[in-house]
Each structure stands twice: as structure tokens, then as C-alpha cells.
Design a protein around this nucleic acid. Structure first.
Length: 208
DNA sequence: CCATTAAGATACT
DNA sequence: AGTATCTTAATGG
């Protein structure tokens, strides 16, 4: 299937042509840093394949996982950067091997004025990310780590399209803002329940 | 072998 | 739930 097929499904033919003519396809390997905090935002990525992890950094330099972006989605932070300050507030890391269309930000204004489907796309992106961030806040404030870990693992399995996820307890701890020992404890609990199987550097999620 | 590092264990806050 | 510390196990030279 054409990776850009979803463009035709939601944008005017005219706009699809504009997008194709003015954006460059780019490929990232898993764990590549696509955008970093403080860097100028020159492109808006539209994801064709794969997934991107978006995170913030707190005052101590600790990372905070905001959300994952998937196929057909774009980063609302980029949109915001087009309106005012051009520096990125976030770090974006390829979660798996990922293909994106890099759209130069200079087209944002023009397309928003000209194409209603683009305005809709931008608004909906904002809305989706807003909802995701609300959920991220909610889960940190009110959910126990137990549930957050389970949700995190389910998300991983979906994004990687694989029951066996390559990850260390330490990396999970960073993403969930917890410590390695605590994550190990909770993972062991899940294993004893038969939900997962633990290995060095990987976790088998086929029974989760 | 040995060095490195992920993960397990224990004890304390 | 989190920190500190020690032990054990896997991995790669």
C-alpha cells in the first residue's frame, strides 16, 4: 500500500500535490534523535510509517514522556513553533524505524489560509495531542505506577508490532519517571502473574 | 579469563 | 514508592 495514501483521504487533491512537491521524505532508524530541545524548528514532520516518542525535560534534566506519534500524525509542538518562537520545546526520538515527510514550516500559513482540510488537520492534531497530554498528566497524578507500567508495555507492543520488546528496566524507569529497582519489582510481579516473561534486554509480552 | 552492565536481592526511608 | 548498596548473571572482547 502507498505510504502516502492517507493524504489523499483527508486533503484536497490540490493540497496533496503541494505537499508532495514541497516536502522531502526522510527515514530514521530506531532511537535516532529527530528533534531536540532548543533547536530551531524548520520542518513539520508527517509520519508515514513507524512511531516517534515525544518527551520534555524537567529542570533537573530528567525526561518526561509526553506521548507517542503514529502514522498520519504530526507534532503539535511544531505547529506552535510556527506561530511564535521557533525553538523546539521538546525532544523527538524515533521509537522504531520511521519514515516521515518533512514539510518546511514556511508553508503552514499559506496552506492554512488556502485549504480547509489543512486547517482541520491542524486543529485535530492540536486536539489529539491535548487529550494525550491530559491523559499523561492524569496518569502521573492519579494512576498507580502498576497501571502505568502495564499501559506502557501495551503501547510498546503495539508500536513495535512485536510481542517481544527490546528494552531494559532502566529505560522503562526513565520513561515512567521511576527508578530501575521499582520497575524491576513491578515487572517481576507481572511475571509471577504469568502476564509477561523477563529476559535480559527484552520482555516477552505475548500473554499480556 | 576479565570488564561491563542488566537485573535481582536486601535493607532502610 | 524510592534510594543506596551489594550480589549475580549475561555478554562481548
Amino acid at each position: 500500500m502507498e505510504p502516502t495514501q492517507f493524504l489523499e483521504a483527508q486533503f484536497e487533491p490540490d493540497l496533496v500535490a503541494q505537499i508532495k512537491a514541497n516536502s522531502s521524505p526522510k527515514t530514521f532508524k530506531a532511537n535516532d534523535v529527530i528533534m531536540d530541545i532548543g533547536l530551531p524548528v524548520q520542518f513539520m514532520p508527517i509520519i508515514l510509517k513507524g512511531a516517534i516518542k515525544i518527551l520534555q525535560e524537567d529542570d533537573e534534566g530528567e525526561e518526561l514522556l509526553l506521548y507517542f506519534l503514529e502514522k498520519g500524525e504530526t507534532c503539535a509542538m511544531t505547529l506552535q513553533c510556527c506561530l511564535g518562537n521557533a525553538k523546539s520545546q521538546i525532544r523527538a526520538i524515533a521509537e522504531v524505524d520511521t519514515d516521515v515527510l518533512m514539510v518546511p514550516v514556511k508553508f503552514m500559513d499559506e496552506w492554512a489560509a488556502k485549504y480547509s482540510s489543512w486547517r482541520k488537520f491542524v486543529f485535530e492534531s492540536y486536539h489529539e495531542r491535548f487529550v494525550e497530554m491530559m491523559q499523561a498528566i492524569d496518569s502521573i497524578a492519579f494512576q498507580n505506577l502498576d497501571d502505568r507500567l502495564s499501559n506502557y508495555l501495551l503501547e510498546k507492543r503495539k508500536l513495535h508490532e512485536n510481542d517481544i520488546v527490546q528494552i531494559t528496566h532502566q529505560e522503562i524507569a526513565y520513561d515512567l519517571h521511576s527508578s530501575r529497582v521499582v520497575v524491576s519489582r513491578l515487572l517481576k510481579k507481572l511475571e509471577n502473574r504469568g502476564d509477561i516473561k523477563l529476559h535480559r534486554n527484552s520482555i516477552d509480552l505475548s500473554n499480556l
